[in-house]
Design a protein around this nucleic acid. Structure first.
Length: 179
DNA sequence: ACGAGGATGCTCT
DNA sequence: GAGCATCCTCGTC
């Protein structure tokens, strides 16, 4: 699974579109098809958490391919990244949003509402019940699973990344073209 | 549909 | 002590 998405974040990000993320918490399975991601390109990217080098928070980004990096956003939300580079090269793809295709009832309960279930990074993490305890762990079959469909690469559009204040000119956000 | 404003906590300067 | 890789609510149009 993870081997199919090795490389620079910029190359990997569009290939994660259409992939499925599956978690199973307390017997409640949730499955989401990813339709929005952003690439963060380590030392070459002023907007990356890893731009200024390794710290306690961003250490997972320097880990191997398939490492999960979760950080707290604005004191409230959790945001999920997948590390895509080699050890020491902090390439990562932020999972920003998706469409819930399994465990809708569970997600509605977790989110406390029945619309906008996973159309944003904080909502996405909450829908899958991913929090800081997952940061530094690996993608795995019985934990947080990522399944990439290499047969059907989706059409997508690119835009500047959302919510950042540096490197705003780079079109490093990837959104699936169709729903 | 869209925009302003507040909540909230952790990291790094 | 500033600055966030955000979300929700409530106000307008």
């Amino acid at each position: 699974m993870a081997g199919a998405v090795a490389g620079q974040a910029l190359d990997v990000a569009p290939r994660i579109l259409g992939a499925r993320v599956i978690t199973n918490v307390d017997g409640n399975r949730v499955e989401i098809v990813i339709n929005e991601v952003e690439a963060y390109c380590g030392g070459a990217d002023p907007a990356s958490h890893a731009y200024r080098g390794e710290t306690a928070r961003n250490a997972p980004m320097f880990g191997p391919l398939g490492t999960i990096y979760v950080y707290r956003s604005y004191g409230i939300h959790w945001c999920v990244n997948i590390v895509t580079g080699e050890i020491g090269d902090p390439q990562a793809v932020l999972l920003r949003g998706g469409h819930v295709v399994g465990g809708v009832d569970t997600v509605v309960k977790r989110r406390g509402r029945s619309d906008h279930l996973a159309d944003g990074p904080g909502k996405f993490a909450q829908a899958l019940a991913i929090d800081g305890s997952a940061s530094g762990t690996m993608l795995s079959h019985d934990g947080i699973a990522l399944t990439v469909d290499t047969e059907n690469p989706p059409a997508y559009v690119t835009t500047p990344r959302i919510g950042i204040s540096r490197a705003t000119d780079r079109q490093w956000r990837f959104v699936s073209a169709a729903t």
